[in-house]
């Protein structure tokens, strides 16, 4: 063919993801996009906007708020929803705790990471969601490498990794019984590098936390953590002010910060290209055991 159109890998991944997002809108009655304010969910939202333009995104954003946030993320989240006229639903882990459904962890390493699952499953039931899309990627973690684009959950919200539906070509089977739902991962095939290159190529706005800034931090288990009102410091832990940035954004209690001077996307991409540890390597939530992610996912985690 003479008029050959060259499609680079980012455009091909983008096309695949947009196709999946549209399948969700077509196959489900009441989907939502899980949105944390991190870069993956920001890319997901960008893809959703591209999928339906010039119409608005036909589903709401859902944030499961642990209360242990970086303030910048919340401001970013609210601004983005407002500017784009998208419905934003926030469900609070604190409410789940107050209702007595879960018990807050205690001790210095206390995290609300596990508690989120209950809040999320309650939200899915309350809002009668039949599909929850997320920005999970297969390259993040080995249990996630086994995940389908359309991932079936039973009526307890559980994942059965050994009995997943085969997924072929680009045919996605979203059929289910009452009470069951799907988790859908449109950017399954993206890597951390793809996400950054795409943010750069599309000039997508991201929270300032991803760029270098001065922050009061302390070291725990080899990772730099930010100080926050609800963080307990051990006697041996000293607060220092350092030049850091976030490589991922999760809860403030378990997001390790990178010592970095990268203040623009090009420098971030170079830094990621040279870095020799995984993105979740500094996420304390994954370090609990080798199968930590698989166990959480089976119960209904993101």
């Amino acid at each position: 063919m003479d008029n050959k159109i060259v499609i680079n890998h980012l455009r091909e991944l983008e096309s695949e993801s947009i196709h999946v997002v549209r399948e969700v809108a077509a196959q489900f009655e009441n989907p939502a996009l899980l949105f944390s304010g991190g870069k993956d969910s920001i890319v997901m939202f960008h893809l959703a906007r591209k999928a339906f333009h010039p119409a608005k995104v036909p589903f709401p954003l859902l944030h499961i708020d642990t209360g242990h946030n970086f303030e910048e993320t919340i401001i970013f989240r609210d601004t983005l929803a407002k500017e784009t006229g998208t419905e934003l639903i926030v469900k609070y882990v604190q409410d789940t705790i107050d209702q007595g459904k879960v018990t807050e962890e205690t001790g210095v390493n206390a995290s609300r990471n596990l508690l989120q699952t209950t809040t999320l499953l309650d939200a899915i039931e309350d809002l009668k969601l039949d599909a929850a899309m997320g920005g999970g990627r297969r390259d993040e973690e080995k249990a996630r490498a086994k995940e389908r684009f359309f991932s079936h959950r039973d009526d307890f919200g559980q994942w059965d990794p050994k009995n997943q539906r085969p997924e072929l070509w680009s045919l996605y089977n979203g059929k289910k019984n009452m009470g069951e739902h799907f988790r859908v991962f449109p950017i399954s095939n993206w890597t951390e590098m793809d996400v950054w290159q795409y943010i750069y190529m599309e000039n997508i706005k991201i929270p300032s936390l991803y760029f270098t800034h001065k922050r009061k931090v302390f070291k725990r288990d080899g990772a730099w953590l930010s100080i926050a009102p609800f963080m307990q410091l051990k006697d041996s832990e000293k607060v220092e002010e350092l030049i850091v940035r976030c490589r991922t954004i999760g809860d403030i209690t378990n997001t390790g910060l990178t010592l970095s001077k990268a203040d623009n996307l090009e420098d971030i991409i170079e830094e990621i290209a040279a870095i020799r540890t995984t993105e979740r390597g500094d996420r304390a939530d994954d370090k609990r055991s080798e199968a930590a992610m698989e166990d959480r996912k089976k119960e209904g985690y993101f």
């Binding site: 297969r138 490498a145 086994k146 050994k162 997943q164």
Partner: peptide
């Protein structure tokens, strides 16, 4: 199961 791996 099928596992997907990525490199560039």
């Amino acid at each position: 199961d099928v596992a997907y791996r990525y490199f560039a």
